[in-house]
């Protein structure tokens, strides 16, 4: 673990222009209809990964089962981050847990939404004075909706989810893009908490490049620090390397990840 002084302080988060403004529409009418359809489908089908960190988790079973039945709204629980759309953080997040939460968040496929349930995710709640608890969830990942309360009743949970659905349908729920565009900011906060050698298995910067989600604040001092010690994370590309046909190529330029 590196000392905390090695991590540059993030300072005040710079205001960053996010490319797509909320609710903007494409001009081509067919594309608009298509976008509407996709957004509607996205809003009516939400797979939920509940990371049951704290006491708030106990409010979810009633929200899912016969009394309130989330499936009416197209919301159902899923198991692995790859399958999920919503990451539900249901309570206080200790530093150790937060690492896993970030790993899980980065493994989800976008568009992805984070919902912080319970006051602990908003400001640490009753764990405000704890040395081991992350106070504000949205310092470490963009949060779409907070559902405050200690704990919020299932009605409140459903109400919050309805709000998220409305946001998705109108195209306003794109906080996930912020993670790519201001990665340096989030990474900085993470590094301050976990140390300078903090690294997740997901290569967020390469992902931003691949999907054209690169923003002006994706890179910065913190990502530079990350690059210093980062284990390479390129995918193992399939390569057909028949020695007889490859003799002219030198071994050095063949890439591949050495770990």
């Amino acid at each position: 673990m590196t000392h905390i002084d090695q991590v540059p302080t993030p300072g005040a988060p710079r205001p960053v222009e996010i490319g797509v403004k909320p609710g903007t529409k494409r001009t081509n009418p067919f594309a608009r209809v298509f976008d509407e359809l996709v957004r509607f489908a996205q809003s009516r089908s939400l797979f939920m990964l509940h990371y049951c960190t704290g006491c708030g988790a106990v409010e979810l079973p009633p929200a899912m089962t016969s009394r309130f039945d989330m499936e009416r709204l197209g919301i159902q629980p899923m198991v692995s981050p790859r399958q999920a759309d919503i990451l539900l953080i249901t309570g206080y997040v200790s530093v150790k847990t937060l690492k896993r939460v970030i790993l899980t968040y980065e493994q989800m496929n976008s568009p992805k939404y984070v919902i912080g349930i319970c006051s602990c995710t908003v400001n640490g709640g009753m764990y405000w004075q704890s040395y081991a608890t992350a106070k504000k969830l949205n310092d470490y990942m963009p949060v779409d909706i907070y559902i405050a309360g200690c704990m919020p009743r299932p009605e409140a949970v459903i109400e919050g989810l309805r709000g998220l659905i409305e946001n998705i349908r109108t195209g306003r729920a794109d906080a996930w893009k912020d993670y790519y565009r201001r990665y340096d900011h989030y990474l900085g906060n993470q590094q301050r908490l976990f140390g300078a050698d903090w690294q997740t298995p997901t290569d967020v910067i390469a992902e931003a490049r691949h999907y054209d989600l690169f923003g002006p604040a994706t890179l910065g001092a913190h990502t530079a620090l990350l690059e210093q010690h980062q284990r390479p994370l390129e995918a193992l590309e399939m390569r057909i390397e028949i020695p007889e046909l490859m003799r002219r190529r030198s071994r050095s330029d063949q890439g591949g990840t050495a770990q």
Binding site: P201, T202, A206, R231, L233
Partner: peptide
């Protein structure tokens, strides 16, 4: 949608960090 190939250690392990 477009897909991106990821490293084999970028994998679900119940929140565990995989190493080589």
């Amino acid at each position: 949608g477009r897909s991106r190939r990821v490293h084999q250690l970028d994998n679900y392990a119940g929140g565990h960090f995989l190493t080589a």
